[in-house]
Design a protein around this nucleic acid. Structure first.
Length: 215
DNA sequence: ACCCAGGGTCATA
DNA sequence: TATGACCATGGG
């Protein structure tokens, strides 16, 4: 992917969808919670779970870390995978508090912070990069299934491209600009939801993607 | 009834 | 390293 291609797609997306004003969330901590809860989940349902946490007075690291597991899971119910996510949020908050909270973590270099985030159970590459970009304001380009879908259909990457290789492709093609990376990922999501829909499942071969014979 | 949604972990080969 | 099973609610 050339710098020109990366920039041209961004301009097209911005023109088509307009600024997205991400991340939806009031504080860095709320953004982190949202990043975990939105794993494989519609944002609408995440909002309900966050509203539950707020109403229960548990929208802070100590509250979540100290909450009883069944109670926390029940508050998270609308976001799906509620037992798993209760566990993940608790792990995350224990790490967050143990590290010294936002004021301490904010001073860490990006590499160290990313490595530490990936060490938290339940935080994979995309969640870590959401947190780095949107909560810590680091110039890390977030990749997701939508990025791969859109850019492979444009012929700008392989449909099988791995997370890190795609991330590096964008980070080498674009300047390390937090505002740019913020808007870019948000526009990718907007475009995927609106226009770039998933391939229908092939009824002949039952692949979860368009099979080669379909084209 | 089915697929999809702003993924990640774990067991298995 | 690379698949597959699993997690689970809500909307189209």
């Amino acid at each position: 992917m050339t710098p020109h291609e990366a920039r041209a797609v961004f301009e097209r997306l911005l023109e088509q969808h307009g600024p997205q004003h991400w991340w939806p969330g009031d504080t860095p901590f709320e953004i982190m919670v949202g990043a975990v809860l939105t794993q494989n989940t519609a944002w609408r349902n995440v909002e309900r779970a966050i509203a539950n946490l707020r109403q229960a007075g548990l929208l802070d690291a100590r509250g979540i870390a100290e909450a009883e597991a069944p109670r926390l899971a029940d508050l998270l119910r609308p976001s799906g995978y509620f037992n798993v996510k209760a566990d993940r949020l608790r792990h995350y908050c224990n790490w967050y508090l143990g590290a010294g909270g936002f004021e301490v973590l904010r001073s860490w270099p990006t590499d160290k912070l990313r490595h530490a985030l990936l060490g938290v159970k339940g935080v994979g590459p995309e969640t870590a990069d959401d947190i780095l970009l949107y909560a810590f304001q680091r110039p890390v380009f977030v990749i997701d299934a939508y990025t791969r879908r859109i850019f492979s259909r444009l012929g700008l990457c392989s449909p099988e491209a791995g997370y890190e290789s795609l991330r590096h492709a964008f980070e080498h093609a674009l300047p390390p600009d937090v505002a740019l990376f913020n808007e870019y990922h948000a526009l990718v999501v907007a475009h995927a939801k609106d226009i770039c829909r998933p391939c229908p499942r092939c009824t002949e071969c039952s692949l979860r993607r368009r099979c080669p014979a379909a084209d």
